[in-house]
Structures are given as structure tokens and as C-alpha cells.
């Protein structure tokens, strides 16, 4: 997947991989993340990080998800982009989209028809519908099929 270096307009190769045990201390102490990602892991979510291929120790964003096999869907619980990549002064762009693209990819690779669900805070719902093509399903949002493929085509 490609993320955008905002200053140069250059696309850089990035990779999403599982968070290793040693990463949790870095995440907690680096001052660039505010959520407790070790707790996400303890709650039973799979936790993934995104980093540049050329600089893999420098985590740019995190994602927690659950593989709900009985319903053939991936449920994304939490996404966080590092604080230096949020707002007008961000160094890299497309990080959150790339993490969602990873979830869509997983949902196709597991033969779940690309089905990804979320239950975001009310204030964030419109953003996820407009930017990534999610639709409302009761209190949840979901994307699947062509919508999920579009996320992959845009971000991976």
C-alpha cells in the first residue's frame, strides 16, 4: 500500500503487520498515541500497525479488529493515526484509509465478500459514510462487495 508524503507529494510503500509484544511499550511511551492498545489486545482484538517499509520501527497508525467467523465478517473496533500525522501539519496522509483497506483486504481473503463492520461514535458516522462508502445498518456501519473493493483500489 502507498501512503502520501505531504511535503513532497511522493507516495511511499507501507505495510500493515501484527503488533508485536515489544511494540506495546513503544506505543505507550512514544507520546504519539493516546489509546491503550495493550488493552485492545487483552480484550481479544487483533492489533495491527502500519509503518513505512523503509522505516518499519516507526509506527504511523494502529487498528484493532475481530474476525467474526460465524458471520463471515471483519469488525473494526478502533483506529488511531499517530498525532504527528493528524491535522494541517501532518507528515503522511492516507494512513487511516490504508488501515481500512487492510481490513477490506482481509475480508476478501477470508471469503467474507469484503464485509467490514464498525460501530463508531455518532459524530464520526458521516465521515465514514462519505469518505469510505460505509452504509448504516442499525447502530453499525458496514461496507462490502464493490464498496469494499473501492477502498482497496483507492488505498492498496
Amino acid at each position: 500500500m502507498k501512503i502520501l508524503h505531504t511535503a513532497t507529494g511522493e507516495y511511499k510503500d507501507a505495510e500493515v503487520v501484527p503488533v508485536a509484544e515489544k511494540d506495546y511499550d513503544y506505543i505507550k511511551n512514544c507520546g504519539r498515541f493516546v489509546f491503550d492498545w495493550r488493552t485492545e489486545n487483552r480484550l481479544g482484538f487483533e492489533v495491527y500497525k502500519i509503518a513505512l517499509k523503509e522505516y518499519e520501527d516507526h509506527i504511523l497508525g494502529l487498528l484493532s479488529l475481530r474476525d467474526i467467523q460465524q458471520e463471515l465478517r471483519i469488525h473494526v473496533n478502533l483506529v488511531e493515526v499517530s498525532s504527528d500525522n493528524i491535522g494541517a501539519g501532518k507528515i503522511y496522509d492516507r494512513i487511516a484509509g490504508s488501515l481500512l483497506g487492510f481490513a477490506s483486504q482481509m475480508a476478501f481473503e477470508k471469503s467474507y465478500d469484503g464485509f467490514v463492520s464498525l460501530i463508531p461514535k455518532t459524530d464520526l458516522i458521516d465521515h465514514y459514510c462519505q469518505k469510505y462508502g460505509f452504509s448504516r445498518v442499525g447502530k453499525s456501519l458496514a461496507v462490502e462487495g464493490a464498496g469494499s473493493l473501492a477502498i482497496i483500489q483507492n488505498y492498496l
Binding site: E80, V81, I119, L124
Partner: peptide, 21 residues
Amino acid sequence: DGYLIPADLTEEERAGAEQEI
């Protein structure tokens, strides 16, 4: 742009949301 934060639901609301999806 930078976060997906889960909704703050009660146990009952969460169970209902899970049932719907």
C-alpha cells in the same frame, strides 16, 4: 480523519447492535 472511536454503548445497546448486524 485520524480516529475511528467506538460508540459508547450500554451492554444492552451493544447486544442489540450486534443482533442487527
